[in-house]
Design a protein around this nucleic acid. Structure first.
Lengths: 99, 99
DNA sequence: TACTCTGCTACAATATTTGTAGCAGCCAAA
DNA sequence: TTTGGCTGCTACAAATATTGTAGCAGAGTA
């Protein structure tokens, strides 16, 4: 992949968030930490290949970490990020109802 | 593509936003309306194939429209959406500086 | 030992993304 | 009227990413 030309932080962030399933995974983890297989299940039985590569990306970006006890969880930064997305929920509802 | 299992509005929105270049395109259009080729240029000479398919998706979702005079522009909804993303700019800067 | 979780890898099929080339329409100057 | 330079695109093949299935190896329990 890789693109964006730019090294602006926002573009790097957009690169990560623009990958398929990344937003979904963050969204699901916001409901609480869980195991690899639970995360798969929450994402509609998404294939382990994707879960695995996305988790690696998200860990590298320090939005997610692997805990000793409860599986995968959002880091403080990950929580902060997903909080910025929470207003999207209301927006999405309004957006769909305009159809 | 298609996925998400769910018909929840937020998931539909995530489907759209999760496609490559969509966030970037919205971000660039927020700097002002522009022509097809200008948009290509702003996105780092992105191929016309992608610009075209993304523009179609975004028009269908009514985040973007084609104006008679100034080319492609954000709709009111598109502006509202991208405004929700503006805080990401500061976040991204903080995030990168933590390395 | 056997059963059942876990996280994950291998690999082939499929879908998406990308780049290059170029067409057809429009307008203005020569 | 023809040349040139814009415009918005499309065609198509190559490269890359995503998906699904199968299954392995480790840990814990009984």
């Amino acid at each position: 992949m890789s693109n964006s030309t730019s090294s602006r932080p926002i573009m790097q962030l957009i690169d990560i968030l623009g990958k398929k399933w990344v937003l979904r995974i963050l969204w699901e983890l916001n409901d609480g930490a869980c195991t690899f297989r639970q995360l798969q299940s929450r994402c509609g039985d998404l294939s382990p290949t994707i879960i695995n590569t996305r988790i690696k990306d998200l860990c590298a970006a320090r939005f997610v970490l692997k805990t000793a006890d409860s599986g995968y969880a959002l880091t403080a930064q990950g929580e902060e990020l997903i909080e910025l997305f929470l207003p999207l929920n209301d927006f999405a509802t309004r957006w769909m109802s305009d159809d």
